[in-house]
C-alpha cells in the first residue's frame, strides 16, 4: 500500500477544502471497501480525509414526514432505527441484507452509495479493466460475467452496482445532499449513479471533491407496505444475484401506486419505471404483475452466461408484488 497522509475533517466545508488542496486525496468513511481496494492496489490516494467525525451521524424527521439521514450514519444504525423500520421497511431490510454484522457496524450511508463494483476484473490489478484503467479493455464481456449486468451495459463495461441499500433508496426516490467546491446541491435517486457508456470509470454523476453529507427520504405513505427481497448464491453475506425493492399501494384489488427498483442487474440501482407505469391502475394480480415485469425486462440484453437473471428477476419481482398484495 502506498503511504498516505491522514487528516480528520471537523466539518463538511473543511473536508471539501482539503480535497480541493490535494486532488489525489480521497474521503474515508467506514473504510470497508476503500481500505480493501487500497490493499489490492486498486485505489492509491496520497491522502485520506476522515469524514466519519463530522456532525452528520443522525437520522432526523423532516416536517413533511420524510427522513434526513446523515451520511455518517452507520449502516447498522440506519437498519435498526424505529422510524425507518416502521415507515420504510424495505430500506431497513435492504441494509440488513447486505454484508455482515461487523461490516454494517463500520460502513456509512455515504460510503455505501459510493462503494465500487465487485466485478473480479476490477479488483484484480493484473487484469485489464476499463473502469479501473480506462482504455485497457473489458475481459468480463467474454470472461466471467455470470453475476454481472443484463441491462444498460456497454461494450466498455458490464459491471453491476453492489449496494443493496441503494436499490431501496432508488425505489424511494431519495435525494442525495452533496457539498462541493461550488457549494451545496442535491442529486435525486435514481440519477446519482450513471450507466457506464464509454466512461465506466465514472460510477456516479458526482464531481471530484464532492462529499455526500446526507440522504433525504421523502415521505411516502404506502412505503409502510414495502419489501426488499434478495437472491444470492448463499444464504447470507453475499452480493445479490438479483434483488427487488418494492412498495405497493393496493385498494379494492387495484394498484393505485407503486415503486419498484431492481438490484444486481445494472451499473446502477435500476428503477423499474416501465413496470411501475404498467401497474398503476391495473388489477393487483399475478397475471398483471408478470406482464409488467416482462415489459420492464424486455430491454434486458443478457450476456453469454447470465441469461438466467432475466426470468429470475421477473419471478422475484412477481413474487414480491404478490406477497405485498396478500399482506394488504
Amino acid at each position: 500500500m502506498r503511504p498516505f497522509d491522514y487528516r480528520r475533517a471537523e466539518d463538511a466545508r473543511s473536508a471539501v477544502a482539503a480535497l480541493d488542496e490535494r486532488p489525489d486525496a480521497m474521503y474515508l468513511g467506514g473504510g470497508t471497501n476503500l481500505v480493501d481496494l487500497m490493499r489490492l492496489g486498486v485505489a492509491s490516494p496520497e491522502m485520506l480525509v476522515d469524514v466519519t467525525r463530522i456532525s452528520s451521524s443522525a437520522i432526523e424527521e423532516s416536517a413533511d414526514g420524510g427522513l434526513l439521514i446523515g451520511a455518517g450514519v452507520r449502516n447498522s444504525d440506519l437498519a435498526c432505527d424505529p422510524l425507518v423500520r416502521l415507515r420504510h421497511p424495505m430500506l431497513a431490510e435492504s441494509v440488513l441484507a447486505g454484508a455482515s454484522g461487523q461490516i454494517r457496524n463500520m460502513a456509512t450511508v455515504g460510503g455505501n452509495l459510493l462503494q465500487r463494483t465487485r466485478c473480479s476484473y476490477f479488483q484484480d490489478i493484473s487484469k485489464p479493466c476499463n473502469k479501473r484503467q480506462p482504455g485497457s479493455g473489458c475481459p468480463a464481456r467474454e470472461g466471467d460475467h455470470r453475476n454481472l449486468a443484463i441491462i444498460g451495459h456497454s461494450s466498455d463495461c458490464v459491471a453491476t452496482h453492489p449496494s443493496d441499500m441503494a436499490v431501496a433508496l432508488a425505489a424511494l426516490g431519495a435525494i442525495v445532499h452533496v457539498e462541493g467546491r461550488r457549494g451545496s446541491r442535491t442529486v435525486p435517486m435514481p440519477g446519482l449513479h450513471r450507466l457506464p457508456g464509454d466512461e465506466p470509470d465514472r460510477d456516479t454523476v458526482l464531481e471530484a471533491g464532492d462529499l455526500i453529507t446526507a440522504v433525504e427520504v421523502p415521505a411516502l405513505s404506502f412505503a409502510t407496505r414495502s419489501h426488499y427481497r434478495k437472491v444470492r448464491d448463499r444464504a447470507s453475506f453475499a452480493f445479490a444475484v438479483v434483488s427487488v425493492a418494492a412498495a405497493l399501494d393496493v385498494a379494492d384489488g387495484v394498484v393505485r401506486d407503486c415503486r419498484i427498483a431492481l438490484g444486481g442487474v445494472a451499473h446502477v440501482p435500476w428503477r423499474a419505471e416501465i413496470a411501475e407505469e404498467a401497474l398503476r391502475g391495473s388489477a393487483a394480480t399475478a397475471t398483471e404483475f408478470t406482464r409488467a415485469a416482462d415489459l420492464e425486462l424486455a430491454q434486458a440484453r443478457p450476456l453469454r452466461d447470465n441469461g438466467f437473471k432475466v426470468p429470475l428477476a421477473r419471478n422475484v419481482l412477481v413474487r414480491t408484488l404478490i406477497d405485498l398484495t396478500e399482506a394488504s
Binding site: 470497508t32 480493501d36 454484522g101 457496524n105 463500520m106
Partner: peptide, 12 residues
C-alpha cells in the same frame, strides 16, 4: 461494537 480489525486503520 463488533468490527473487523483488518479493515480499520489504527490512525482513525
Amino acid at each position: 461494537r463488533r468490527m473487523k480489525a483488518c479493515l480499520a486503520l489504527t490512525v482513525t
